[in-house]
Design a protein around this nucleic acid. Structure first.
Length: 279
DNA sequence: CAAGAATCCTGTCAGC
DNA sequence: TGCTGACAGGATTCTT
């Protein structure tokens, strides 16, 4: 379930427990996830000290001493389990396990295996093929009305699809695109190039606010970002439209005026929207 | 080049 | 209950 806010929260949780620690043991339980895992991964992790973390789009970068970074993507079903160092009850999909010098254990669980893990020289993180073509960070100062307008210039693809394209803006997923478009009162069907102007001036702040609020909710709803069962970084959200097909639109008084929230399919993904509010 | 479809994989849930 | 099909928060690769 990870989009940018979840990835950010997971990263902060990992940082709280791993930063400055030495990885005393590393298990890599299969040769591949989405792509082959580096054959040297377990050896490279074992004995390494964790220097720090950062996030780029939905990727977590864990910096090790010795000059390498571990690049982690959670895919659709990736999760991190963190807890005292004892065996996990459900190990069927626990593909990677780390143990630290403080006696903690971190497991990467990913049933669908759409996630990925790779090694990259720290100095060349952003040149990695998976990062090289990413657009600006939506919460960064590089993501502006001007940058979004330029990215969408001349594009006739629906704005919903354009916002999911990581080259235009990096880190948005299906949920937050639906929510941000709703908050900005923009139809997901609208042609991208028509977003320029007033609509872009509404959309950019709503994207930033939607993400920032979700990150804040994640940080505040979890102690140390770890739930009692060891699950790291996920939290309940109050979506206004996502997953609310046929429910009343919160912005339409009485709900009856617009007939409720609709679900449509765009480029194979579900879009939730209110046709009355979003134009 | 742009846009949509197919694809990787497993789990869950609704409906019969 | 058991079966079936739809669907899932991603992103690359393949077609058109």
């Amino acid at each position: 379930m990870p989009e940018l806010p979840e990835v950010e929260t997971v990263m902060r949780g990992l940082a709280a427990r791993l930063e400055g620690r030495v990885i005393t043991r590393a298990l890599v339980n299969r040769p591949d996830l989405r792509w082959p895992l580096p054959p040297t991964l377990a050896a490279r992790l074992t004995g390494a000290r964790v220097l720090g973390f950062r996030r780029r789009a939905k990727y977590i970068l864990m910096r090790l001493d010795g000059g390498d970074s571990v690049m982690i993507h959670l895919g659709m079903s990736g999760r991190m389990l963190i807890g005292p160092n004892r065996p996990n009850q459900d190990t069927a999909h626990e593909h990677i396990v780390l143990e630290t010098d403080e006696g903690w254990r971190v497991g990467f669980v990913d049933p669908r295996r759409f996630g990925s893990v790779d090694l990259v020289p720290t100095a060349e993180e952003d040149a990695h093929r998976l990062l090289a073509d990413l657009g600006p960070e939506p919460l960064g100062e590089d993501f502006t009305v001007a940058s979004l307008t330029a990215a969408l210039d001349g594009k006739r693809t629906p704005i919903k699809s354009a916002l999911l394209d990581q080259r235009n803006v990096a880190g948005l997923g299906n949920i937050y695109v639906c929510e941000a478009l709703y908050r900005a009162k923009i139809s997901p069907l609208r042609s991208s190039h028509t977003i320029a102007g007033a609509r872009a001036r509404r959309l950019v702040p709503e994207i930033k606010a939607t993400l920032a609020e979700a990150i804040a909710a994640g940080g505040s709803s979890l102690r140390d970002y770890v739930q009692p069962d060891g699950e790291l970084g996920y939290f309940q959200h109050a979506w206004k439209v996502y997953g609310r097909e046929n429910e009343p639109c919160p912005s339409c008084p009485g709900g009856a005026a617009c007939g409720g929230i609709r679900r449509i399919t765009q480029a194979g993904r579900s879009t939730f929207h209110c046709p009355s509010v979003q134009r």
